Simulated scan of single mutants.
Amino acid sequence: MLTILVTGGAGFIGSNFVRLVLGKRDWRVVVIDKLTYAGSLLNLREVEDDPRYSFIQADIADHAAVSEAFDRWQPDMIVNFAAETHVDRSIDGPRNFLTTNAIGTFELLEVTRQYWSRLELSRRRNFRFMQISTDEVYGSLGDTGFFKEDSRYAPNSPYAASKASADHFVRSYNKTYGMPTLISHCSNNYGFNQYPEKLIPLTISKALASESIPIYGDGQNVRDWVFVADHCEAILAILARGRVGEQYNVGAKCERTNLEVVSEVCTALEELMPAEHNNALLATRCKSYRDLITLVPDRPGHDRRYAIDCSRIERELGWTSRISFEMGLRVTARWYLLNRSWSQSVKQGRYDGRRLGLTVVAPRGKERARTGTA
């Protein structure tokens, strides 16, 4: 039985990946997660009784703890999801992003290199280290064009910069030491178990509570959206057939402005829980969820547009997204409606829905704060 070690496996994409692997592969899955605010064992409750699943609470920056996990479980593959991911939080506190995303990845690479170098030849050849990255490392696009695997790195937020740094370390370990690495850059994910600070679950939460739904700037910033299950299938394809040392872009060719996304969430909620049945909304005298949409001052360094060219993974690995945005959004909204207790549990004492990333240092060194709700 092959063993895959999944770091950050209690987070949003990681937990969806763990459930997919245990459902489709006869592999042993070992999860390492620090369990920060966005990671929760509630995300893994469906697999906690599977004898092939094991969990270790540890920080990937803890060299000794990760080394102990490698020695015990002797993994055949590593998939690194562990990361701080919220751009607004990176504006408020970039240090945590450097520590986890860059230094943590470095420590994980070092443990992996030392372990991999001791393996017998056949296991060394078949071993894989996969870094889960983001399209944000490429910066911002204009009205046309797409991010390709050879697009230059131009990160504009501390989050993106920390992920770019991690990518460069991963690539260097392949080029310098010959370690069999892979990197994926995915567009915006949505789906089950996403922490309620992100756009889609935050919109659902705000709408159900009849609170103002904030959209940054003019609402015309564009993102390419992919359902999380499609992304996880892409990761499996890259692990199985990806060329060592390469990187693959993952997207669904589904560009939407933020205003369009929020409007479509409101449409899905109208179908699942009509406004006329929401007492909280009726109390505000709003006639629809769309009435709650509010434009607020923009985020500092807000990239205007992301769009992914995923032709390489389609051509070389035969992967393509299968779930349309309309279908994925509807099942996502339905999941959050049925799992409102989950949202409350993971937020309790950690996140109260307020907007983050408001404070900016002005050019003359004077600090100013932008107001708004989120």
Rank of each mutant, 00 (worst) to 15 (best):
N80L: 12
F81R: 05
F81L: 02
A82Y: 01
A82M: 01
H86R: 04
H86Y: 15
H86G: 01
V87T: 14
S90V: 02
S90G: 06
S90F: 02
I91M: 09
I91A: 05
D92T: 12
D92N: 08
R95P: 00
N96V: 14
L98A: 08
L98S: 05
T99R: 14
T99S: 15
T100G: 10
A102K: 01
I103H: 07
T105Q: 08
T105R: 05
E107Y: 09
E107I: 12
L108A: 02
L108H: 01
L109E: 10
L109G: 08
E110Y: 01
E110P: 00
T112H: 06
Q114S: 10
Q114I: 02
Y115P: 03
Y115L: 12
Y115T: 09
Y115S: 06
W116H: 05
W116K: 06
S117E: 14
S117T: 09
R118H: 13
L119S: 07
E120C: 08
E120H: 12
L121R: 14
S122V: 09
R124G: 01
R124I: 05
R124S: 02
R124H: 06
R125E: 04
R125V: 11
R125T: 11
F127W: 05
F127R: 06
R128L: 02
R128N: 10
M130L: 15
Q131M: 07
Q131K: 02
Q131P: 01
Q131L: 04
I132V: 15
I132R: 00
S133T: 06
D135Y: 04
D135A: 09
Y138M: 10
G139F: 03
G139R: 00
G139D: 03
S140E: 09
S140T: 15
L141N: 04
D143A: 14
D143L: 14
T144Y: 10
G145K: 03
F146E: 13
F146G: 09
F146R: 15
K148L: 04
E149F: 04
E149V: 06
D150V: 12
R152Q: 07
Y153V: 15
Y153L: 14
A154W: 01
A154D: 13
P155G: 08
P155V: 07
N156C: 10
N156I: 15
S157A: 03
S157Y: 10
P158R: 01
A160L: 04
A161Y: 11
S162H: 11
S162Y: 05
K163H: 08
K163P: 04
K163Q: 11
S165F: 13
D167I: 08
H168P: 00
H168K: 11
F169I: 06
F169Q: 12
F169C: 06
S172Q: 13
Y173F: 14
N174R: 13
K175M: 15
K175G: 03
K175S: 09
T176S: 13
T176W: 12
Y177H: 14
G178F: 12
T181G: 07
L182V: 11
S184E: 08
S184P: 02
C186L: 11
C186H: 08
S187D: 07
S187A: 13
N188C: 05
N188K: 09
N189P: 10
N189S: 10
N189D: 00
Y190W: 13
F192D: 06
F192Q: 11
N193I: 02
Q194S: 01
P196W: 07
E197G: 01
L199A: 06
L199W: 00
I200T: 12
P201R: 01
L202K: 07
T203L: 01
I204L: 03
